[in-house]
Nucleic acid binder design. Structure first.
Lengths: 253, 253
DNA sequence: TACAATTGTGTATAAAGTACACAATTGTAA
DNA sequence: TTACAATTGTGTACTTTATACACAATTGTA
């Protein structure tokens, strides 16, 4: 929550620098210890959760805006980003419209604007992220996919749409290069797929299918030290991966 | 091209009614006599082609805006629309920015704005469309998919992205209900698929596969009068079709 | 040293996709 | 009237992909 003076300053700055009526919201997926995670922000002093988001600078490509916004939250530089939908209901920013409504007249108040939000989802390497809160939030951090809090505005819809899109893309694109560490075992990769899809897959059939895609390289040496039989280590074959990204897996027709 | 007076009037009206920085562009697909068609506009007195487009009214849901814009061009009421991408390069509206640049100062000139364009594609019944030009264009009409002219702005990119999206959706969604007349023959439907995909399909395998989707009903009587053997008539089974639309065809995983 | 947990690999069966052939219908030209 | 070309309806063999399931090997622990 801003004071009146802060609101004036923020509004003036925003109007000067950002495109009006346009915002960006990001669903950042990470994967850690067999759990799919999403990056969320929590308001100062309130149980109000949000997706990380921001605005587009007047001369800035929207893709770059999404990158900049996420760079501020994660410290990451080159982020795998996928635009997936625009959310354009007229009342979607109503909560924010009302929040500061009596502090400042609408023509001066940035938060009185109607915003269309461009949704991006990001796949990031969990271990390389250092979550940083923004000026409105006391907390920026990971939440488990199966333990998401209630979110403000239409952020639950945005999140759900992102997840649906990700699940769909699993059918014709490789996933994992941006989510897994350099080297990983087959069961670890399978866990990623199972978490995204929220269902169990057959271990043997998964291995055959994934290998048939031709996007993995097997290391010579298996991982040692752990309990149980030492599993082989795999890494993504960048050439095959990129090819699969552009060409897609299966023709369908 | 507008006169200075018209530009002033247009700009003032636009600023009053529309959300700034946001536009909508539509790729309207129709199918007629075995040819896929796209609805295009041509500027008055110039060989400049555009996709039909428009702006979003201040209190209007974007989906409704797209519907309104297309209703004005086609006369159609309930249009199958699919949002597919936002085009947000800063220089994408440069041609328009420059066009009226010396007529009016930027802060008053609507066309000096940067616009992000939300891309929608539409599938419509060719025979029910009555193309109507807008105030900037002398001509609104169909062009064959394989005979598209060079287009202005980034409209070629928008068109190409729409077509790619449509081809992708063919793999997990039924297509045709919005494009075909009530009754049609199997070869006619096959032609639609072949046109979209730009490749030949095997007649017998196509029939089996399409029928297996469970979205077609066969009429009792075949079509008569034509040359050659009388083909059966089919219509879409609305229940099955809707089910396939929401559920998708094949799981993949 | 037996055991539980986990990994690697193979095989039988079902389903889906692909390639291809032949018979039936209809208007047209001889 | 009849042969013919064009087109439609249907079926079958073969290949590829997907699914279900079993057993042997490895590793730390009790």
């Amino acid at each position: 929550m801003l004071t009146r003076e802060e609101l004036i300053e923020y509004s003036d700055e925003a109007r000067k620098n950002y495109l009006e009526h346009i915002s960006i919201d990001c669903v950042v997926f990470g994967f850690h210890e067999g759990q799919m995670k999403v990056l969320l922000l929590k308001n100062i002093g309130e149980e109000k959760w949000y997706l990380p988001g921001g605005f587009v600078l007047k001369p800035e490509p929207i893709e770059m805006a999404a990158n900049r916004i996420l760079n501020e939250r994660t410290g990451l530089d080159k982020i795998f980003l996928q635009q997936f939908h625009v959310f354009g209901a007229p009342d979607r920013s109503k909560v924010h419209n009302d929040m500061y409504a009596d502090m400042l007249p609408p023509e001066q108040n940035w938060f009185s604007n109607r915003f269309l939000s461009i949704g991006y989802y990001a796949l990031v390497d969990f271990s390389e992220v250092t979550p940083k809160a923004d000026r409105f939030s006391e907390l920026c951090g990971w939440r488990d996919l199966d333990d998401m809090p209630t979110m403000e505005l239409d952020h639950e819809l945005i999140f759900k749409t992102a997840l649906d899109t990700l699940r769909l893309q699993l059918n014709y694109q490789p996933i994992g290069y941006n989510l897994m560490p350099k080297e990983f075992t087959m069961p670890e990769l399978q866990k990623l797929y199972e978490t995204i899809l929220d269902k169990k897959l057959d271990r043997r059939n998964f291995q055959r299918r994934i290998l048939a895609f031709g996007i993995l390289n097997r290391a010579e040496q298996p991982r040692k030290g752990g309990a149980h039989k030492a599993p082989y280590l795999y890494s993504f074959d960048l050439e095959g991966y990129r090819h699969a990204l552009t060409e897609g897996f299966k023709g369908g027709w």
